[in-house]
Simulated assay, not measured.
Amino acid sequence: MSGLQRLGIASLTIAALAVGGALIALFTGAGVSGPSPAAAQTPSERVISVSGEGRVFIRPDLAIVTLGVELSNPDLATAQQEASQRMDAVLAELQARGIPEEKIKTVSYSIWVERNYEQPDQPITGYRIVHLVEVQVQPVDRAGEIIQAAVGAGANSVSGVSFTVADPSTVMRQARELAMRDARDRASHLAQLAGVSLGSPIRIVEGGAFPPPVPVEARAAAGAADALPPGQTVVSVVVTVDFAIQ
Rank of each mutant, 00 (worst) to 15 (best):
A194C: 03
L62Y: 04
V133A: 04
R173K: 07
E82N: 02
G126I: 11
A96L: 05
V47A: 00
Q232G: 10
R173H: 07
V135H: 10
I202F: 01
P230A: 01
A79P: 08
V241P: 15
K105S: 11
L132M: 04
A220T: 01
P213I: 13
V69L: 10
L94E: 13
R142V: 08
E177D: 14
P43H: 01
F243D: 01
L71V: 03
A39W: 10
R173Y: 08
A63Y: 13
T170V: 10
P60E: 15
R46I: 02
E145H: 11
E102V: 13
A179L: 09
T106F: 03
G29E: 14
Q119R: 13
F27T: 13
D75G: 03
P212H: 15
H131R: 12
I245F: 10
D182R: 02
S33V: 03
V161C: 01
G31N: 12
A155T: 07
R115H: 07
A22T: 05
A38G: 06
M87L: 12
I147W: 08
S11T: 15
A209W: 00
V165L: 08
T164M: 03
A143I: 07
P211L: 07
P43F: 07
Q192H: 07
Q95H: 08
Q174R: 03
P120N: 08
Q192D: 02
F163N: 03
V205I: 14
V161G: 03
D75F: 02
E82M: 00
Q81W: 12
L190D: 06
Q41L: 01
P35L: 03
D88P: 01
F57P: 02
I204L: 09
A244D: 09
E118T: 07
A218M: 11
L91F: 03
A225Y: 12
E217I: 13
V19P: 00
I204N: 03
W112G: 09
L190P: 06
P123L: 05
A166C: 04
P168Y: 15
T170F: 14
R97D: 11
G8S: 09
A40W: 04
A244I: 08
A16C: 09
I147V: 06
I129V: 15
S51V: 01
F243L: 05
M172C: 06
E82L: 11
A22G: 04
R46V: 06
S236A: 15
E70A: 06
G208I: 06
A77L: 14
I204D: 01
V113A: 04
T164F: 08
R128F: 12
H189K: 09
T78F: 13
S84D: 02
L198C: 01
L190H: 05
I146W: 09
A224E: 15
I202T: 14
R97G: 06
M1P: 11
V235M: 11
V107S: 14
L17N: 02
E118K: 12
G144W: 15
H131C: 09
G68P: 00
Q246V: 13
G98N: 00
Q5C: 08
V56T: 06
R203W: 05
A218H: 12
L4I: 07
V237G: 02
Q148E: 10
A92F: 03
A227Y: 14
I104M: 00
E101F: 05
F210T: 07
V140Y: 15
Q136T: 13
V47K: 05
V135Y: 11
V140P: 02
Y127Q: 04
A18Q: 09
D185C: 02
Q122V: 01
N156V: 13
P74E: 11
M87W: 06
P123V: 04
A179Q: 08
